[in-house]
Amino acid sequence: MTEPLQGDPNPSGDAFAQRLEAARKKQGMDPTPPAPADGDTQPSAMGVGARVGVELVASMIVGVGIGWYLDRWLHTSPLFLVVFVFLGGAAGIANVWRMMKPKG
C-alpha cells in the first residue's frame, strides 16, 4: 500500500485484486495464462494449413451435396450442381477469411 488510489470507490476490492494478479504474474506464480483465448491454440503452420484445407473441402462437400440433391429432385441436372459448386467454393473462402481475419 504505497500510494493511495484516488477516485477509486472501492480501493480494497477490484484494484487490490488487479494488483495482486499483476504481482503474481510478475513473480511467475500463475503458470496458467497461456490458455489461448481464441478458437485456435498456438497456430502452427501445419495446423493452420490443415484447418484451411478442411474448411475448404467441407464447404465444397456441402455445396456439391445441395446442388446434386436439388438436381436429382428437380431433374435439372447439371444446373444446380454447377451453381452450388461455385457457391460452395465461395463459402469455403468466406470461412477461411473469417478464420484468418484479425480479431476486431
Binding site: 456441402v62 463459402a91 468466406a94
Partner: peptide, 11 residues
C-alpha cells in the same frame, strides 16, 4: 452464408 453454416458440422 447458409452453406457456410451447414459446412460447420462437416468440417
Amino acid at each position: 452464408e447458409v452453406i457456410s453454416y451447414l459446412s460447420r458440422p462437416v468440417s
